[in-house]
């Protein structure tokens, strides 16, 4: 399987869609989290100085994706950090994630916007026709 691993944004009326593509569901979850960071700033500008552990559990993979992104939104808000590097392990509908980032530096990061929350709009977790795993939803900014 030749999968183009990566992340992207896509247009949604007032807000923005985030999409991660990977060889596994876990990798798609890692990539979509980078897309989330990309809503705020250029992820390449964020150094991995601080580690945060995140645990989520949900009845299905799609709710799990919303939970994962919202857990990151929450951690970034209360710690005043931007998280842009991720490792995800999935066991059924349980997620163990690790995220790395650093405190917001307005001059260096030029953060464009804070994310209010991940939504159930355009929410999808699954494999596309090429066999790649895709994880996506719209986030409210």
């Amino acid at each position: 399987m030749d999968v183009r691993v990566g992340w992207e944004h896509y247009a949604h009326g007032a807000d923005i869609g985030v999409r991660g593509i990977g060889r596994s569901m876990a990798e798609a979850f890692e990539q979509v989290a980078i897309a989330l960071a990309g809503v705020i700033t250029d992820p390449a500008r964020v150094e991995a100085r601080e580690e945060v552990a995140v645990e989520c559990q949900a009845p299905d993979p799609e709710v799990l994706l919303v939970d994962w992104l919202n857990a990151l939104v929450y951690q970034m808000a209360v710690r005043r950090v931007i998280l842009a590097h991720f490792r995800v392990n999935l066991a059924g509908n349980q997620l163990h994630g690790r995220a790395w980032g650093e405190e917001v530096d307005v001059a260096r990061h030029e953060p464009a916007v804070e994310v209010k929350g991940a939504t159930y709009t355009d929410l999808f977790v699954g494999q596309n026709s090429t066999g790649a795993w895709v994880a996506q939803c719209v986030v409210d900014v």
């Binding site: 919303v66 209010k116 939504t119």
Partner: peptide, 28 residues
């Protein structure tokens, strides 16, 4: 923002219990 997040999730998960059929989960 967090209240919106918290209750959207609860309403999505509990809608079937209340017999509410959602055309879109976001309408929870």
């Amino acid at each position: 923002h967090q209240i919106g997040t918290d209750f959207l999730r609860e309403m999505v998960l509990q809608a079937p219990q209340y017999g509410i059929e959602l055309p879109d989960r976001e309408l929870a």
